[in-house]
Amino acid sequence: MSKSKPWQNMSSLRTGRSFDLGKMSLPQLWIAYLTYPTILLYFVLIVAAAFGALHFSHSLLTTLIPVPVVIVVYPLAWYMIHRFILHGRWLYRNHWTASLWKRIHFDHHQDPHLLDVLFGSPLNTVPTMGIITMPIGYLICGWSGAFCALSTALVMTCIYEFFHCIQHLAYKPRWKWVARIKQLHVLHHFHDENGNYGITNYVPDRFFGSFYREARDRARSQHVFNLGYDLDEAKRYPWVMNLTGAPPKDRPDGARSSSDNSRTA
C-alpha cells in the first residue's frame, strides 16, 4: 500500500469542529498550522508591528532593545496568566466571565487534542500581548519600542503555539529538548494540572515551586480534566455547563475506567 501524502484525507482529521491533533502526523500539523486563520493573522500583525517600529524608529539598535527584554518577561507573564487566571476559579463563578473562561481554557482541558480550542481567540490574545509588552517597549524607546515589543510577543506566541501543538500531537519528537517539554506538558494535562504551567519555558515553574518531573512525584489530580469545575460546581455555577450543553467531563472521550480495563484484560 502506498504511503499517504500529508495533504490527503485532511477532512478525515476533523472531529466536527476542530482538527484532532491525536490523529495528525507532523507534516499534517505543518499544513494545518501554516494555513490556520489565527496563525495567519499573527503573521500579518508581526509584519504590521515591525513596520510600525521602523516607522517611529530613530535608531535601529535602540528600537531592538525591547526584544531581549520581552523574551525574558513574556514567559513569566504567561506563567502568571496560566496559573492564576486560566486555572483560577473566579472566572467561571461569574456569569459575565464564564463564557470567556470556557473558551480560553476549560474547553482545552476537556479535550486537549482539539486544535480550535488550543489556539486562543485573537480577540483575547492580541490585546493581552499588547497590554503586557507595549508599555515595556514604550518605556524603553517610545512608540518604536512599543511596536517592536508587540512584534516580538507575536513571534513568541507563534513559536509557543507550534510547540503546544506538538505537545498534543500523535508524534514522538526526535529532539531531546522537544520530547522533554512534551512530557512535562502531558503531565499538566493528564496527571496534575496544578504544575508545569509552561509551554517551552519552565523556569518560572521551578522558581515558584510548581515544577515536577515525573508522574510519581505527585498524586494524580481528580480535576485534571475539569479544572475543578465538577458536577457540584456546575450545579452552583451552571453558566459554563449551559454553554457546553453537557455536564463537565472528568476524563477525555474514549478513555476507559480501570473497571473497563479489567473487564477487557
Rank of each mutant, 00 (worst) to 15 (best):
L150I: 14
I31D: 04
N124T: 04
A49K: 11
K182T: 03
Y138M: 02
H164C: 04
F162M: 14
L60E: 10
C148E: 10
C158F: 01
L115E: 04
F211D: 11
Y160F: 10
R14S: 03
A234F: 07
V69C: 02
L41D: 13
L29N: 02
V70C: 01
E233D: 11
R83W: 03
K182H: 02
Q222R: 13
I71M: 10
S11Q: 14
A179S: 10
Q28W: 06
A219F: 10
W7N: 05
H108Q: 00
Y138N: 06
F119L: 15
G228L: 07
C158G: 11
N124A: 06
P252E: 00
L64I: 15
V73G: 00
A179R: 05
W96N: 04
T264D: 05
L64R: 03
L123N: 07
L100F: 11
R213D: 14
R251E: 07
I131K: 09
K235C: 08
I39P: 03
A98W: 00
P75C: 09
L61F: 08
P252Y: 01
L169A: 08
T97R: 01
I181A: 06
I81P: 11
K23N: 02
L21D: 05
L40I: 07
R218Q: 07
R218S: 01
L118V: 10
F147K: 12
I199D: 04
N9G: 09
L64W: 09
I199C: 06
H113R: 07
D260T: 15
G209K: 10
H105V: 01
Q28D: 05
Y171L: 01
L76G: 09
N124I: 01
P68Y: 12
D232T: 08
I131T: 07
R216Y: 13
L154F: 01
D217G: 13
K182A: 03
L118N: 11
L45Q: 08
P27E: 12
L54G: 00
E161V: 05
M80Q: 03
M241K: 14
L41Y: 09
R17D: 13
S4D: 02
S11I: 00
G16H: 04
H168Y: 09
R83S: 06
P122I: 09
G228C: 13
A255I: 15
V240E: 06
L187G: 11
I104A: 10
Y92M: 07
K3Q: 07
S2G: 13
